[in-house]
């Protein structure tokens, strides 16, 4: 590969990884608090469409991102109200949220099909990104850096802050967290809301940067990959970054290899790999239950009612 090719490859990879990283970071926080929200795809679609709508109406991609966060957050609060407020089943509620998101985004988006919007665009001035090697570092939009910064922030938050500790405690043992006097439901609601906002932002990355447009089902199933990635990363933000970039690399490499004239594997087999790898990782961390933080949060997916 020539250096120009490498630069372009690296950039495609980073941009493919970013929305998955954003969505899975949000889901990671929710799962760390013990909530399994399978509605990521639905929240991403709602974020994608609200972001696009807001950006076309205001002319600002950043305001679009903000609207996307709010859209995803609003959708997640429906989920929170049901699963936490009324202790409904999380799996069923998450699936319903996805059905809802697909429908709602299509209805909201109908007037915006065929419209265009300016991309979020590179963060740094073009002069800084002129040299190819500098472009790999300075050539991206805000969200690529933002996702990485957020991953670091989430890692630090979970590990080194008191609220982070409480959040993990709530996910590991809701009853004891409750008996010490923490509000399990408040913590979980906040975690779910964070997950919703991040999923919304991830959706906006599609409609405002990768493919600046709105069309039905624009995210084409990336939300499910984000869900798998959280497990693949065994609930650790650092591994999440590695996992998202690894996923981006494999997908980008597949296309590059085929464009260069040789296929790696049948595309269907390649598409299975992330999920097979996730099952393998899950099994491995369960076989060697070393540190507690390496395994699934103990209360994941279980309802909690304080009474």
């Amino acid at each position: 590969m020539t250096s120009a090719l490498l630069v372009s490859f690296a950039m495609t990879l980073a941009m493919a990884a970013t929305p998955i990283l954003l969505a899975s970071l949000g889901e990671l926080v929710a799962e760390k608090a013990g909530v399994l929200n399978l509605g990521v795809e639905g929240m991403m679609l709602i974020g994608a469409v609200t972001g696009f709508a807001a950006a076309t109406l205001t002319g600002s991609a950043y305001l679009g991102c903000l609207a996307a966060i709010l859209g995803g957050l609003a959708a997640s609060l429906v989920f929170a109200g049901l699963t936490l407020g009324l202790s409904s089943n999380q799996v069923a509620t998450g699936l319903a949220l996805t059905i809802f998101g697909v429908g709602a985004s299509s209805l909201i988006g109908a007037p915006f099909v065929g419209k265009t919007v300016a991309r979020i665009g590179p963060l740094f001035p073009a002069a800084l990104a002129e040299h190819p090697l500098l472009r790999v570092v300075f050539g991206y939009d805000l969200l690529v850096y933002g996702a990485l910064a957020l991953a670091a922030a989430v890692g630090w938050f979970l590990k080194h802050t008191r609220p982070g500790l409480i959040l993990r405690a709530v996910g590991e043992s809701d009853t004891s967290a409750h008996s010490i006097g923490y509000s399990v439901l408040a913590v979980r609601t906040a975690a779910v809301a964070f997950g919703g906002g991040m999923a919304g932002l991830a959706g906006a990355y599609f409609s405002l940067e990768l493919t600046p447009m709105w069309a039905d089902r624009l995210t084409a199933g990336r939300g499910w990959i984000a869900l798998a990635l959280v497990v693949f990363a065994s609930w650790r933000p650092g591994r999440l970054v590695a996992g998202a970039y690894l996923f981006g690399a494999v997908m980008t490499l597949e296309l590059h290899a085929k464009a260069a004239g040789f296929g790696l594997l049948p595309p269907e087999i390649l598409a299975m790999l992330p999920y097979l790898a996730t099952i393998a990782v899950l099994t491995l961390i369960s076989v060697r239950p070393g540190r507690v933080s390496a395994a699934a949060p103990a209360c994941l997916g279980k309802s909690f009612s304080p009474a």
Partner: peptide, 18 residues
């Protein structure tokens, strides 16, 4: 639109779970 039916089904499920 078909999307409205999807929302309808989602609502049914939301209410049921609620």
């Amino acid at each position: 639109p078909q999307a409205a039916t999807g929302m309808f089904q989602a609502m049914l499920l939301f209410f049921l779970l609620a």
